[in-house]
């Protein structure tokens, strides 16, 4: 009987071990890409035609301090000090944001679109309340990120990034201030090295422009987006690719391009695209008058739709 007991215990133990060990799966939270080398460098990127700005020089960015100045040397020192005392969290952030952060910000946008792609439910009395940007908490929460809203959010973010990068490129090659890791051999760049001047910081343009657009599109996420922006801006400095004045100039461009984009968004007619019951009923009646039939909504309770 003793050996029988031992066999049973062994069997149970083996079963537990096999089952627990066999099934850990990787469930990635973001796309697993790392920094990479670009196949070519277009130094004339500042001449590209922006979407909403007049040109790459439309936003004024003042000249940076010369690389010989004490001011710049202090900034270099600041980079070296910060890099010397990085936490493992900060190192992870550098790997995460990579040298193509536009993709990361698109992932952030996708996450918020998924989070807010929830059709508002009915009230207890069978009516529906439309999401309202002046009362984003709701219920229902603002926005309902249905596909047209999602496309619009992504479009404004991409336009702001695009215009901002053209502006950054214009000034990079106008002022030609090299990156910290080019100025000081003791600084190791975290990504693939290149010859792109670092003032203003293109990463900071992406960070600020994306944060501003997404904050306007998803107002309840302001604090979350602020945290992401701060982490991203910090990683730019800690990567050895930017001094603080590079980042500040990029942030300035990001603010300017997103202000233009959001001014356009405020008057693009999206606010008229919702259908309260009166509008829905009139559309339905107009369709019936014209064609002799109209679509019925089959939800319970019936939802007013365009």
């Amino acid at each position: 009987m003793k050996t029988m007991h031992n066999k049973i215990y062994f069997l149970l133990l083996a079963l537990v071990t096999i089952i627990l060990a066999s099934c850990e799966k990787d469930t990635p939270r973001y796309l697993p890409y790392e920094d990479y080398a670009y196949s070519e460098l277009n130094a004339d990127g500042g001449d590209w035609v922006p979407v909403l700005q007049e040109s790459g020089s439309a936003i004024e960015i003042s000249a940076p301090a010369s690389s010989d100045s004490q001011e710049y040397q202090n900034e270099l020192q600041e980079v070296k000090q910060a890099m010397g005392s990085m936490t493992s969290e900060q190192k992870k952030a550098i790997t995460y944001w990579t040298n193509n952060p536009a993709i990361r910000w698109n992932e952030v946008a996708l996450e918020l679109i998924a989070k807010y792609n929830l059709i508002p439910g009915p009230n207890a009395d069978g009516t529906y309340t439309l999401p309202n940007p002046s009362n984003p908490e709701g219920p229902p929460a603002f926005p309902f990120a249905h596909p047209p809203y999602a496309c619009r959010a992504l479009a404004y973010m991409s336009v702001a990034q695009f215009d901002g990068l053209i502006t950054a490129w214009h000034y990079k090659y106008e002022y030609n201030r090299a990156a910290p890791y080019k100025m000081d051999e003791t600084i190791d760049y975290a990504y693939q090295e290149n010859d792109i001047p670092s003032y203003p910081s293109d990463g900071a343009v992406i960070a600020r422009a994306s944060k501003n657009i997404l904050t306007a599109m998803f107002p309840l996420e302001a604090a979350y987006l602020q945290d992401l922006e701060e982490e991203h801006l910090e990683s730019l400095l800690l990567s050895g690719g930017n001094v603080m004045s590079d980042i500040n100039a990029g942030v300035e461009i990001g603010d300017a391009v997103s202000t233009t984009a959001l001014a356009r968004a405020a008057n693009d007619g999206m606010k008229n695209a919702q259908t309260p019951k009166a509008v829905s009923d009139s559309i339905k009646q107009a369709a019936f008058d014209r064609f002799g039939w109209a679509w019925d909504n089959l939800e319970i309770p019936e939802r007013p739709v365009g």
């Binding site: 990635p28 939270r29 996708l110 998924a114």
Partner: peptide
């Protein structure tokens, strides 16, 4: 191949 679970998951596998 994507779902939301208090954040993005780029996989079809759900824990």
């Amino acid at each position: 191949d994507y779902y939301y679970n208090n954040g993005s998951y780029y996989t079809a596998w759900m824990d």
